[in-house]
C-alpha cells in the first residue's frame, strides 16, 4: 500500500494518446511444393517422413530444413502407423453445452520411425488422467481423405504390453 502511494506522489498521471499495431493484411507464405509428396501419401493413407542424408534424422511432419546440418532433406521414407506419446499436458476448458470445466489432454506424439514430435488429437473425450509418457497409439484415418494433415483424424490408444510386464515385476518384488 505504501509503495502505491509513493508511485502516485512521484509520477503524476498525464493525458493518454491511443495507438494500435494493426497488421490485418499480413500474409504468411508457405511453400507447399516441398511437402507435396507427404500430402499425396496422406491422401492414399500412407505416412512418409523426410530423412536428412547427412545426419539420418527423420522428421514427421516433414521439416524443410535440417537444423543440424543446414541442408534440405530430400529422402522420403515410409513410416509405420503406430506412434507413442512423447510428452503431454492438460488444459482445463468448458466446451459449449457443457456445464463443467473438464481437463483435456494436449499430447506431443512421436511417430514410430521419426525423430520429431507433433501435437495431434486423441479420441474425443479421452480421459486426461489415463495418458502417460510412452503410451502406444495408432492412427485413425479420416473417412474422406483430402490430402492434408486433417486426414489423420486422431490417434487411437492401443493395447500396451508393458503395463502387464510392469505389474508382474511389481508383484515379484
Amino acid at each position: 500500500m505504501a509503495r502505491l502511494e509513493y508511485i502516485k506522489k512521484q509520477y503524476p498521471r498525464t493525458r493518454r494518446v491511443h495507438g494500435n499495431w494493426y497488421l490485418s493484411s499480413y500474409q504468411y507464405k508457405f511453400n507447399v511444393k516441398r511437402i507435396n509428396q507427404c500430402l499425396e501419401h496422406l491422401r492414399m493413407g500412407e505416412l512418409v517422413g523426410l530423412k536428412c542424408r547427412s545426419c539420418n534424422t527423420v522428421s514427421f511432419p516433414p521439416r524443410l530444413i535440417c537444423p543440424k546440418c543446414l541442408k534440405m532433406p530430400d529422402q522420403w521414407i515410409h513410416l509405420r502407423e503406430t506412434a507413442t506419446v512423447a510428452t503431454f499436458s492438460g488444459t482445463y476448458a468448458k466446451e459449449s453445452g457443457d456445464t463443467e470445466i473438464r481437463p483435456y489432454p494436449v499430447v506431443a506424439i512421436r511417430q514410430d520411425g521419426a525423430d520429431t514430435t507433433w501435437l495431434a488429437n486423441l479420441p474425443e473425450g479421452f480421459d486426461f488422467f489415463k495418458v502417460y509418457v510412452g503410451m502406444p497409439l495408432k492412427i485413425k484415418w479420416a473417412e474422406d481423405k483430402k490430402g492434408d494433415f486433417s486426414d489423420i483424424e486422431y490417434y487411437e490408444p492401443i493395447e500396451d504390453p508393458s503395463i502387464e510386464m510392469n505389474k508382474k515385476e511389481e508383484a515379484e518384488n
Binding site: 504468411y28 507464405k29 511453400n31 516441398r34 524443410l64 530444413i65 543446414l70 541442408k71 534440405m72
Partner: peptide, 18 residues
C-alpha cells in the same frame, strides 16, 4: 513476390555463403 517461404529464402542465403 518470391515463391518461397521465409525460412527457405533464408536457407538459400546462409547455405550459399557457407
Amino acid at each position: 513476390d518470391i515463391q518461397m517461404s521465409r525460412p527457405e529464402m533464408i536457407f538459400y542465403a546462409t547455405r550459399g555463403a557457407l
